[in-house]
Design a protein around this nucleic acid. Sequence first.
DNA 1: ACTATATTTCCATATAAATGGAGATATGGA
DNA 2: TCCATATCTCCATTTATATGGAAATATAGT
Lengths: 109, 109
Amino acid sequence: METQDAVAALAALAQETRLDIFRLLVQAGATGLPAGKIAEQLGLPSATLAFHLKELKHAGLVTFTRQGRSLIYAAVYHRMTALLGYLTENCCEGNPATCGLPAARKEPA
Amino acid sequence: METQDAVAALAALAQETRLDIFRLLVQAGATGLPAGKIAEQLGLPSATLAFHLKELKHAGLVTFTRQGRSLIYAAVYHRMTALLGYLTENCCEGNPATCGLPAARKEPA
DNA sequence: ACTATATTTCCATATAAATGGAGATATGGA
DNA sequence: TCCATATCTCCATTTATATGGAAATATAGT
């Protein structure tokens, strides 16, 4: 993962509402959640939710598929993995033990 | 690590200049670097650097000690470790394999 | 075609972040 | 004490982000 992408992903997650959304989607798993359900769970106005979903989408952390009238959003795990890989490498300069971490697997994407 | 702290750490790193500063300090290791050296390496005006160092300090990602006229800054590894732990848990809901990662060691701080 | 539902885009507004010059503060040495 | 050095704080300006009402778009059912 490039620095630019890492900054984008970090910025996307560096906001409480978006982090909440992302966590909710991670919990939801591969099935994902329709936008309306997310809004309901977090008590967000639709416009606000749409704004944050766009940010997450732009950072590559979520995707969606249409299903009838609903858009089903889901977390993009490999993107998160790539971010963790980037941070581990740049935190520990190739020696994760520096940060008390086991070695991260090579990022698959 | 609490969500609030994670958001603060993410926000601190979600900025190219600050990420550059942090990486430089990680590379510098436990010895750290004087502010002037950081400014020189990255070509930053002193006011701009001071602003970003304050952000990183506030997020707990760097500390400093005075040494003569210089302030020596150093990366706070355990904070980064805690952030990685938080993200791993919240990305994978206790099952890091979900993201293709080995289990993270329990955060020491 | 019409109506209801799901979600988005548009827009105005409010709030916060980033930049860098100029001046203030702290330390060390002559 | 005076001067140089290292870094910070103050401030004005610019730029980006967050919020949410209202209207637009897409789909489904009747």
